[in-house]
Design a protein around this nucleic acid. Sequence first.
RNA 1: GCGGGCGUGAUGGAACUGGUAGACAUACCAGACUUAAAAUCUGGAGGCCGAAUGGCCGUGGGGGUUCGAGUCCCCCCGCCCGCACCA
Length: 849
Amino acid sequence: MDRYNSKEIEPKWQKFWDENDVFHAKIDPKKPKYYVLEMFPYPSGKIHMGHVRNYAMGDVIARYKKSKGFNVLHPMGWDAFGMPAENAAMEKKVHPRTWTESNIKDMKEQLRPMGLSIDWSKELATCDPDYYAKQQSLFIDMEKSGLVSRKISKVNWDPVDMTVLANEQVVDGRGWRSGALVEKKELTQWFFNISNYSEELLKGLDALKGWPEKVRIMQNNWIGKSSGAEITFSIKNSITEFKNIKVYTTRPDTIFGMSFLAISPNHPIAVKLSKTNKRLNDFGIECQNNLTSEEALETAEKKGIDTGIKVEHPFIRDKKIPVFIANFIVMDYGTGAVFGCPAHDQRDFDFAKKYNLEILQVFEPENVEINDVSVKNSAILGEGRMINSEFLNGKTTLEARKIVCNQLEKKGTGIEKTNYRLRDWGISRQRYWGCPIPMIHCEKCGLVAEKKENLPILLPEDIEFDRPGNPLERHQDWMKTICPKCDSVAKRETDTMDTFVDSSWYFLRFTSPKDPKPINKEAIDYWMNVDQYIGGIEHAILHLLYSRFFSRAMVKTGHLPEKFKEPFNALFTQGMVCHETYMDGLGQWLSPEEVCHEKSGEIRKISDNSKVTKGASTKMSKSKRNVVDPKDIIEQYGADTARWFVLSDSPPERDIEWTESGVEAAWRHIQRVWRLAHEIINSEDLKSSNSEDEKIEKIRNQTIEKVSKGIETFAFNKSIANLYEFTNFISKSKSSKPSKIRSIKTLAILMNPMTPHLSEEIWEMTGEKSQLSSSMWPRAEEEYLREDLVTLPIQINGKRKTEIQINSGTPEDQIKLEALNNELIKKNLKGVSPKKVIVVPDRIVNIVI
RNA sequence: GCGGGCGUGAUGGAACUGGUAGACAUACCAGACUUAAAAUCUGGAGGCCGAAUGGCCGUGGGGGUUCGAGUCCCCCCGCCCGCACCA
C-alpha cells in the first residue's frame, strides 16, 4: 500500500490553498472576526525550531477558529531593523538592506513548506520605507502631543571604537570587538514619556483577563508603584551651596534606625563635591566604569565614600547623620538619594557593617520570639511593632508610617509620596539601521519636527561600514537639510529609533498594510483587537509594555479609538525548543548531525569515531551548535510530521526537548492514520453489533469534546494524546463500516489544525468535495458525554484498598453501605467499626479507622 | 542582587476546583509475521520485597495543614526567563 507521501501531498494542498486564496482575509461585517498573531520574527536568515513551534501553535488556533466559522486574520511580517544587519555589513561588507532583504526572501522560502494558513498579502517589513514613513508621522504627532522629550542619559561607550555599545555588546565590562574597558557617556537623547502613563498602565493590567497571571505580575512589578515619603534633610555643615537633601523612602517608619544617607554618584551634590575633592572625584570615575544595566549595578560590590557632610535627623535633636556617595544608588529612581536603616534593610545592613555604622533595631517582628531574631547577622525585614523610636514605640510599622508622614508634613520637612520604578522609554539609537527620528536641529528655531509632506525621511543608501559608529553622523549630504520653520540651513537628527518602536504598532498596520494613512479606521474597527497573541516569555515586559503604551499614545494622537488602548485580548507565552549538547574531546561543540548514538548508549563523533560527551539540553543556539534545521526535518518527514511533533508531548508554555525518536513517533502516527483511512475506506461492511457502534460513537463524541477543549485552552499536547487514543480505538474497533467512516472523518477534521495536508487528503479520499479548511468543526452531542457508570475508589485511612462500580448519581448513604459491605473492605476492617466515613459522591470513599 | 517561573518513572509528559499518581508517547523487554532485517501487529512494565493474593516506598529536599497533598502553606536546593541599547 502507498505511504503518505509528503512530497506529493503537501505541495498539492499548499497549491490548492494558494490558488483558491483560502486564507486571504477580507473584511466581512456579517461574520465574526478572529485575529491571531504570532510575534513577528527578526529576519536572521534561518528559520529555527522555535519559529516552527511558534507558528505551528498560531496555525492551530487560526485553522481551528476558521473551521468554527470565524473570519480569521493571520498575517506575517518582519521585524527587520536592528543591529545584526549592521554587524553583517561590517563583517561581510554587505549593505544592511541587501542582507536583510535576502534573509527575508530565504526565510519566506523556508516557511512556505510548513503549510501555514497565513495571509501573505498582508506581509510587511519594518525596514520598508512605507512602514517607517508612517512611523515617522506617528512620531511627529506624538511630539506635538507632548509625549516626547529630550533628556540626558548614559550609554555604554567604547573609547577605542568610539561608538555606543548595546548591553549585549559589552562582555565582562569590555567592548566585544575592541576589548577596551567600557565607559559611561552622557548623551542627550529622545524619550517617550511612558512614565506619565505609569498609573494607567498599572490599572490596565486588571482588565487583561486573557493574559497569563505571571506576565501581569511581572509588568506590575516592573512599573513598581510604591508609597512612602519624600523627606527633606537639612545639611548641618554646608560645604556646598546645597542646603538640604531630598530622600525618597518606602519605610518612613524606620526613621529612628537611620544611620546614614546615601546619594547617587550622579547626584548634583556628589557632582559638585567631586570637582574639588580628589577622593570623591576618583570614586566618581570608578563608578563611571560601572555598566549601565541594572543587573551590573546590583551585582557589583556595594561601595561608598563619606562626603563629610552631615544632615540633621528630623526627630532627634543634635543627631548628626553622615552622607555617603554610594555606587548602588541610581539617579533615575526617586530623588537619587536614600536614607539607610541597617537593621531593617539587607543592603543597608551590609553597607553599615562595611563602614562601621550604627545598627539600631527599631521594630520587633510580630509572632516571633524575641530571642529568635537578632540584628547581629542580618537585617530584619517585614512588619512588626516599633521600639527605640520615641513617639512611635508600641505602634505597628504600618501605623508608624502614617504617623511619621503626618509629623513630617506638620514640620514642613516631608510629604507622603507615591513613586513608580518605571522610567521613560529612551528610543534614541546611535545607529544606521533603524527608523530615522524625524526631527531637525535648527540654529535659530531649535528642535523642529519635519513637515509631514516631506516624509519619509529615507535612510541614505550610500553609506560606509568601514569603521564603527553611526554612518548617518558622517553623511554630510544626508544631514544637511532645511528648517521647516525658517527655511534656513539646518541639520537632521542622526539618531534612529529603538526597534521596539517598530514592534509597538505593527499589529495595527497588519489590518491595512498598504493604506496611505498609518492606519485605516474601517480595518482597525473590524479587525482589532488581536484576539490571540503568541510569543516568547522573554517579551513579557518590554515589548508588551511598550505596545500597551504606544496604543495609548495613538489614542491620544487621534489615530486609534479609545476602545483599542489594550491591543491584545489574550496572550500566550510559549516555551523554547531545546536539544542535547555534544562536546568532543577537544572541548568543541558538535552539531547533532556530527554525532551518532550507539546501542550501548555511547555517543561517538562520526568523522573519527572518537568519544563524545553529552551535555545539558539547552535552548537551540548557534553557539552551542545544538540546532536542528527545520528545513531538513520537513524535507525528510514532511510538514505535518514536524508540526505534529512540535505540538505533541510538551505543554506549549513549557520548553520542549527535540528528540529524533519523538519525530519518528510523529511520523509513524501520520502514516498510521493514513493507512487506517485506506483500510477503512476499502473494507467490506461486515456485520457488527449495535453496541460496538454505540461505543465508537461515544468515544467519537468524547474525543470531539476533549480535543476542542484542549485547543481552546492551549493544551495541544493533551488534544494530541486524545487523538492518539481515538486512533487506537478506531483501529481496534469492531464497529460497522459507516461508523468507522464517520470516525475517520472526525479524526481528519480534528487533526486538521495540526496536520492540515494529511487531513485534506483523507477528507478527499472519503469522497468529500468541500474543503476542510472552512467551517465544519464538529459539535459533540450531550447524550454521549454523560458517564452512567462510575468507578469509585475506596480508601482506608487515605490508602486505596479497592474500587467499586456504581451508577453515577448514587446517593451518599447507599455508596457508604456498598463500600462497607464490600468483601475486601470487610476483610481489611477486621471487624473494627470505622470512626468516620467520608463519601464524595462520584469521586471517592475514605473510611477512617 | 532584584522580579517572575519551573522541578512527577529510563525519557517527554497526564492527573478537572485537594480525591485511584504515571493517561498518551518515547526508549526498553517479550511474542507474532519474515530466510533475515526493517516496517507492522500483540503484550509487558514506577521502585523495592514476595511464587502469588499482597505489602512497603514514591511527584527536587525538609517540615506543616487535612479524613486525604503532585496540587495548599513555610523553609531549602537546582534549573530557566527578564532586568530598560539583543530581538
